[in-house]
Design a binder for these strands. Sequence first.
RNA 1: GCCCGGGUGGCGAAAUUGGUAGACGCAAGGGACUUAAAAUCCCUCGGUUGGAAACGACCGUACCGGUUCGAUUCCGGUCCCGGGCACCA
Length: 873
Amino acid sequence: MSLDERYEPSAVEQAAQQYWDSHNTFTAHEDNAREKYYCLAMFPYPSGKLHMGHVRNYTITDVISRFQRMQGKHVLHPMGWDAFGLPAENAAIAHRVSPAQWTYSNIAYMKQQLQSLGLGVDWSREIATCKPEYYRWEQWLFTRLFQKGVIYRKSGTVNWDPVDQTVLANEQVIDGRGWRSGALIEKREIPMYYFRITDYADELLSSLDELPGWPEQVKTMQRNWIGKSRGMEVTFPFDADLKAAGLGEGLKVFTTRPDTLMGATYVAVAAEHPLATHAALNNAALTAFIHECKSGSVAEADIATAEKKGMATGLTVQHPFTGEALPVWVANYVLMNYGEGAVMAVPAHDERDFAFAQQYQLPIQPVIATSAGNTTPAPWQDAYAEHGTLINSGEFNGLTFESAFEAMEARLKARHLGQSRIQFRLRDWGISRQRFWGCPIPIIHCDSCGDVPVPEADLPVVLPEDVVPDGSGNPLNKLPGFFECACPACGKPARRETDTMDTFVESSWYFARYMSPQYQDGMIDPAAACYWQSVDQYVGGVEHAILHLLYARFFHKLMRDEGLLHSNEPFQRLLTQGMVIAETYYREATGGKKLWFNPADVTVERDSKGKPVGATLNSDGQPVIIGGIEKMSKSKNNGVDPQSLIDQYGADTARLFMMFAAPPEMSLEWSDSGVEGASRFLKRLWKQVVDHLAKATPAMLAADTLDDHQKALRRKTHETIAKVTDDYGRRHTFNTAIAAVMELSNDIGRFNDDSPQGLAVEREALESAVLLLSPIVPHITHSLWAALHPGTAAVDQSWPVLDEQALIRDSITLAVQINGKLRAQIDVPADADKAAVETLAQANENVQRFTAGKTLRKVILVPGKLINFVISD
RNA sequence: GCCCGGGUGGCGAAAUUGGUAGACGCAAGGGACUUAAAAUCCCUCGGUUGGAAACGACCGUACCGGUUCGAUUCCGGUCCCGGGCACCA
């Protein structure tokens, strides 16, 4: 195939994509004869159009997939759609179109966009989670887990919008108000279904150690999230009147610091705690305070940053050892669904209790000798929370944390007032959503039989696709055709559950469905599960480091325990891609609502140093407010559309630029400049191949006949192969791989040797450059390779092989330091020993100047790098 | 508030295990080619400073301190920015 003089991306890209399509290049089959490699990108939510984060994510997995393919692996690289979710309902409300229609048309558009990127994806395995073929297996698994007791029902707290009469997501609560109604949000208790993820807490924690291919950072976040701690359950006995009121024997709390028990000066309970409810019966002020605590969102960040408030109940409980009466307070920082919904407060040794005690003049009793002293004066110091020797604790004085723990436990046990316990921060996973566009929960409520799972033969429970939500509650509640049914157990009229599942459920097992996406007889084809096992490399945004990855790990274990999968962990290696972030711009509309403007529609004014001083909207020239840099998102309207980039420069330039701009794990602040450079490089490479082909036919390369100049280029070629192979395979730093090939290309450009061996060396360098770049820019390299080797395809080539012989050098350049400061550079023979290097270095004029009249203390030689003379006066 | 990251030229970044800070690219300036422009090619490009030049000196990786012959890298502290916090995905 001959090469056009000019590089025309659109023609080149079309030709390459047609070749791959017509050869089914990326279709994956189970093939036990070959080693498999399952490479997976976190699948996209079909929000409307591709954003830069998608381009980054799928280019990374494509580069890894193509690299592994050239290494001889049998690669699975699938793609699909995380298709249920809130934005579809919002679009439905805004545009009066059904969520299904909106979602399917987005999928169609985005699929065509993804295909224009030239991804080596097996599209025959495409899935969409909103299709009954997919979610029927989710419902099937749900019914099995429900029967097994892994799923159960209890009450949970949600954000309630009293005006729209609807449950709101945390995202829809802004400054404590509903985003549409503006109404003050209330917390409300409703029944929900829960997965017993806490039953797997220990394994989710311990098997993190089996994942050396995961970033330490992510494992740390997961460990902290699961939050295993050993502590003490302590009961503070009630007085007779409380016992008489039927509230039990005492107030149960959990503490990780039982050694400070003698310093407890009050106890605090959540607003929803039965003791608070009891105390409020004849106390209007307390009733009002409890009501106030129930306003605002349920988000932990809101609760934790809210002003700490409390009110005394007038009740007391007894200290378990001293019998002292401790006041009971209601506090907004105590959470009902955390531990026992009550805490013992030790202001001397807990920062939050300390602040609370200061605010309400509660006593502070130090009971630990800390490095900050034996008192706890304001302001708070971190040292107050240290472990130390017990003081002011009667019989426990002098004990350490560990011995106090044991002594306290023995004494509590003897009085039946407590015992040690392992506590997890992790809570069971509530999956009920009062929303339409999600997978229906396959449960039927029968007055006689209770909660009955839908029998397998009646699955799937199909979500109607022609419904348009209006923003007031779940439309399924208004569809008798959906919820009216007969009890599968007794046949009496019953009501179908109308809540749908958290969309995290679909994304917790899609990686397994890709193994056999069309399989009709079960969730996964056993043969496929056997071959593909688990994902070798998973790639996705770091924002999913906790929730999605934890839920997927949990589901993998659930499915393993159902006999569906045969490994312990779903993702062997994990690459967390940094976010693509961009500046945000907004104006405040009446009522404080923010209107966000896209960076493409805004002009930024800068001062002489390049710092932004203001910004105006292009359409009206009026100023907008610069809102700070944030992750590209629909809600902040700061996404940059990659389509214009692809249209203008082609997919290869877009891919190259994305990979070159930063290493994958780093967040990438978007800027338009730099794209030009990527495009320029591809044009230059194209021209180098054109020019090379116009010259005479190269001779067979005879490596041992080369002159120094030829040897140097050949060495550069093989140094580049070594570097790029390591960058792709181990480091995943595609930016430095590209830089290395650019250096090689620069050397080729400077190499001017049209002798037969010169051309042979140049040919090897060019072929290597083309293959090394092919995972990143597969289209242009497809054309270039076809021109260099007519009748063959770059995608089917094996990875370039390193020739160690080509790397050998005769002499090397060493840095010469004096007291660690660079003073000279010398060339030494590659095989010179330390003494020879020292002699050569000391002969250097600069070295003599700096060492004259000084005493040489030490010589440090780092072979191949530097020699350092340590001197003194 | 809590947990996890990040901060290096005008800009994106590199320096992989403690060993030559700024590779590679963008922008900018100068030059060649051109009637001109675009494109392309060549040169300069962290700061201060000495020198006619060749070539040097000092400072410099957010800030303060420490360990080391040597620190962008390790340790302690501070500031700023980003992500997550269980109903955005």
